[in-house]
Amino acid sequence: MTKVLWTQQMIISTNINGKLVEKSVEPRKLLSDFIREDCGLTGTHVGCEHGVCGACTVLVDGTAVRSCLMFAVQADGAEIKTVEGLKQEKNGPPLQDAFSECHGLQCGFCTPGILMSSLEFLETNPNPCTKDITEMLSGHLCRCTGYKGMIEAIHKVSNKNL
């Protein structure tokens, strides 16, 4: 006997990196999957799928969120920034350049999420101390760099704002 499963679809409208996106999604679809699969923006990485590693961090209405813990339908009407949209942000290109110059990335898997959290962090903390940067980075798991280069990169960008 063949079973037919009814799947409810919802149309959401969101702004991703300055572009209006309207798509039909299942209510249970995660924002991380929506961004990667439906929008083709694969810079947002999915690591643990439990909100622990931070690789999937994006900005939703200017706030860093773990996109693996949020449903796409919760982003209806929101403005989303992914790592692909960094070039549009005031501190985006300098932050990416500083991470490269200061060796703040190795394999690159965690980098998109860290960049997005760092962007939000610098908006509210334009001249942070090392302790503040370290505390912000504590929400991200990186197994390659030891965080030293990331801390230097964030300091470098924050010093440009003085």
Rank of each mutant, 00 (worst) to 15 (best):
M1W: 00
T2M: 02
V4K: 04
W6C: 00
Q8I: 02
M10K: 09
M10Y: 00
I12L: 04
I12Y: 01
I12W: 00
T14A: 08
I16K: 02
N17H: 01
G18Q: 03
G18T: 04
K19S: 03
L20Y: 00
K23D: 05
E26V: 03
R28A: 04
R28C: 00
L30T: 09
L30S: 13
L30N: 02
S32I: 13
F34Y: 15
D38I: 03
D38A: 04
C39G: 01
L41Q: 09
T44R: 11
T44I: 06
T44F: 09
H45K: 15
V46G: 02
G47S: 11
C48F: 08
G51C: 09
C53I: 04
A55Y: 12
A55R: 09
V58K: 06
L59V: 07
V60C: 15
D61T: 15
D61Y: 14
G62S: 13
T63D: 12
C68I: 10
L69P: 06
F71E: 14
V73N: 05
D76P: 03
G77F: 06
A78C: 15
I80H: 10
K81G: 01
K81E: 11
T82L: 12
T82H: 11
L86S: 09
L86T: 11
K87L: 08
Q88K: 14
E89F: 04
E89T: 07
K90F: 10
F99C: 03
F99H: 09
S100H: 11
C102S: 10
C102Q: 14
C102G: 01
G104Q: 06
Q106A: 14
G108S: 10
G108A: 10
F109H: 10
T111L: 14
P112H: 09
P112I: 12
G113C: 13
L115Q: 14
M116I: 05
L119K: 12
E120V: 07
F121E: 07
F121S: 03
L122T: 06
L122M: 11
L122G: 06
E123R: 15
T124W: 01
N125T: 14
T130A: 15
K131I: 07
K131M: 06
T134M: 02
E135G: 02
M136I: 09
C142N: 07
R143W: 08
M150A: 03
M150F: 01
I151G: 03
I151E: 09
V157S: 02
S158P: 01
S158F: 01
N159I: 01
K160E: 11
N161H: 01
